[in-house]
């Protein structure tokens, strides 16, 4: 095995092109499990932790551009106000040790349908910035990024440079079902994002289909039926219908973590609940302290 350790982004892209069999490694929280258990034996590891360009985030117009190597712990500490949905999801990942290493870039690279970054990225309309030495930069809307279970639109010679997430224009909430408060792969998860000025709602469903997905019908329903200017409490009929539409958008399976029927039911509950939190914040009632 080889160990490639580029220290600049250009060198990383060159190494990616020159070593098709090299497996990128950032926080290692997915990759090292596979190596330790001999699930994978790549010809080389392409260590990206030495690439300074990946380690920071910056405000870019009305979006935040997060370098692929920014760990969850920093997203929680530094971006909770601007990207509340993503920060809430980051808080539920693994344990403190995992959050000190694991990254959104790695979560996208792994493209597991259960990855916790995906629902808030879908709900907020994020784009993935992929780059290759040969073809330069490509912006992939996150909804087009996931192509199958643990498969993505990333080409073999591309690396993820950054994730561009629009600064939250309104309330955003994430919720996840699992057996414990920590260290759980989601049984299912859900994110909602409201954009009151544009009267739009975004959604993201995790762990209830071959890929993370949006509930488009549910989004359109909210856009049309939320009483955006009214300032009153959430209409229970709207909340229920929203829950049903979200559950209907998923295509869950039975597996060791839960049955398809349970996932469908739980998604409906999560959708109603997160919408309730978001609506309360929108209408100026106390904001739930996200945890």
């Amino acid at each position: 095995m080889e160990f490639l350790r580029p220290t600049t982004w250009d060198d990383a892209l060159a190494a990616r092109a020159a070593h098709p069999g090299a497996l990128p490694i950032q926080g290692g929280t997915d990759v090292m499990v596979e190596l330790n258990f001999d699930v994978r034996r790549p010809a080389a590891l392409l260590d990206l932790t030495g690439v300074a360009e990946l380690r920071g985030w910056d405000a870019d117009g009305d979006a935040i551009r997060i370098g692929a190597g920014v760990p969850y712990a920093r997203i929680i500490a530094e971006l909770g106000g601007r990207l509340p949905g993503l920060a809430q999801a980051a808080r539920t990942v693994g344990s403190p040790q995992i959050r000190n290493r694991g990254t959104v870039g790695g979560n996208l690279g792994a493209a597991s349908p259960a990855g916790d970054s995906h629902p808030p990225l879908l709900a907020s309309g994020a784009t993935v910035e992929a780059e290759s030495a040969a073809r330069g930069v490509r912006e992939i809307p996150v909804g087009e990024f996931y192509t199958g279970p643990k498969r993505s639109a990333l080409e073999p010679d591309e690396l993820i440079r950054a994730i561009r997430v629009p600064t939250a224009p309104g309330p955003q909430y994430f919720a996840k079902i699992g057996t414990r408060n920590a260290m759980v792969i989601a049984v299912c998860s859900f994110a909602v994002a409201l954009d009151p000025a544009r009267r739009r709602a975004g959604t993201g469903i995790g762990s209830a289909g071959p890929t993370p997905l949006r509930a488009r019908e549910a989004e359109d329903f909210l856009a049309a039926h939320l009483d955006w200017d009214g300032g009153g409490p959430l209409d229970d009929v709207v909340a229920r219908k929203f829950g049903d539409l979200v559950a209907g958008a998923a295509s869950p399976i039975d597996d060791v973590r839960g049955t398809a029927a349970y996932r469908g039911h739980a998604l409906g509950v999560l959708a109603r609940r997160t919408l309730g939190w978001a609506w309360r914040e929108h209408t100026g009632q106390t904001r739930r302290e996200a945890s």
Binding site: T29, M32, P96
Partner: peptide, 15 residues
Amino acid sequence: GLPVCSCLVAAGQAE
């Protein structure tokens, strides 16, 4: 300075 699981850090990443 940050606590991590050393089983998930590649030895070469400690360079």
